[in-house]
Amino acid sequence: MSITFRRPTLDDAALILSWRSQPRINDMMFSDVHPDQLEQQRRWLAGCEARSDYEHFLILGDGEPVGFLSYADIDRVNGRCSCGSYFGTVEAARKFGGHVHAYFMDYLFYVLGMHKNVIQIIDANQRVLKLQRLLGMREVGVLKEHIIKNGVYRDVHVFELLRQEWEARRWNTQSIADSLRAFGIEENKCQP
Score class of each variant (00 low, 15 high):
35 P>G: 07
36 D>I: 05
39 E>A: 06
40 Q>I: 14
41 Q>T: 03
42 R>C: 07
42 R>S: 06
42 R>H: 03
43 R>L: 12
43 R>V: 08
44 W>L: 06
44 W>Q: 02
45 L>H: 03
45 L>N: 03
45 L>M: 06
47 G>Y: 06
47 G>Q: 05
48 C>A: 14
48 C>T: 10
49 E>T: 11
49 E>R: 09
49 E>G: 09
50 A>D: 10
51 R>C: 08
51 R>I: 08
51 R>M: 07
53 D>Y: 07
53 D>S: 07
53 D>Q: 05
54 Y>Q: 06
55 E>W: 08
55 E>L: 12
56 H>N: 15
56 H>A: 15
57 F>E: 01
57 F>W: 15
58 L>T: 00
59 I>S: 00
59 I>Q: 01
60 L>W: 03
60 L>N: 02
60 L>I: 13
61 G>L: 04
61 G>Y: 01
61 G>A: 11
62 D>M: 13
62 D>C: 11
62 D>R: 03
62 D>E: 15
62 D>I: 07
64 E>V: 15
64 E>P: 10
64 E>N: 10
65 P>L: 08
66 V>H: 09
66 V>R: 01
66 V>C: 11
66 V>W: 04
67 G>N: 09
69 L>T: 04
69 L>M: 14
69 L>D: 02
69 L>Y: 01
69 L>E: 00
69 L>R: 02
69 L>A: 06
70 S>F: 12
70 S>P: 04
70 S>L: 11
70 S>C: 14
71 Y>F: 08
72 A>L: 14
72 A>V: 15
72 A>Q: 13
72 A>N: 13
74 I>Q: 03
75 D>I: 08
75 D>E: 10
76 R>I: 09
76 R>E: 12
77 V>L: 14
77 V>W: 13
80 R>W: 12
80 R>V: 04
80 R>H: 10
81 C>W: 02
81 C>D: 03
81 C>A: 13
82 S>W: 00
82 S>T: 03
83 C>K: 03
83 C>W: 02
83 C>V: 11
84 G>Y: 02
85 S>D: 15
86 Y>S: 00
88 G>M: 03
90 V>C: 13
90 V>W: 12
90 V>S: 14
90 V>M: 12
91 E>T: 08
91 E>Y: 09
91 E>L: 09
92 A>R: 01
92 A>F: 04
93 A>W: 03
94 R>S: 13
95 K>A: 15
95 K>F: 10
95 K>L: 15
96 F>A: 03
96 F>L: 05
